[in-house]
């Protein structure tokens, strides 16, 4: 398991917590917490984010291990799928009403 850069002194790094609320569903981001390492992050996540049966499985990820898309580039990065209606079933109107299609 990846371990974030060990922090100096007594400050624990941030972990992002993902919880699977029941079998068959995806893990969903629940929030974050501080923990010294992955083992404790998992336990803290269990104590903090599943006190009311919210989950059956937990992932923890060091916050600084997450790569994210650039918010300033949102126009360019997400432009391509715009307008490509033919990727969606609703584009095909002539077959509407035909059974099992």
């Amino acid at each position: 398991m990846t371990t974030p850069e060990p922090h100096a002194g007594n400050v624990w790094p941030i972990w992002e917590v993902f919880v699977r609320s029941s079998r068959g569903l995806s893990h969903v981001h629940a929030g974050s917490l501080h923990a010294p390492d992955a083992a404790m992050a998992l336990r803290n996540a269990r104590d903090l984010y599943t006190r009311r049966n919210e989950g059956v499985s937990i992932w923890v990820v060091p916050a600084d291990a997450i790569a994210s898309s650039d918010p300033d580039a949102k126009g360019a990065f997400f432009e391509s799928p715009q307008g490509k209606d033919y990727r969606h079933a609703t584009y095909y109107t002539k077959s509407e009403g035909v059974k099992h299609l």
């Binding site: 992002e16 916050a63 600084d64 997450i66 790569a67 994210s68 300033d72």
Partner: peptide
Amino acid sequence: MASQTLQSVPGEP
């Protein structure tokens, strides 16, 4: 997300 140190993908230097 609590992180400010998120890396950017397309590599905006």
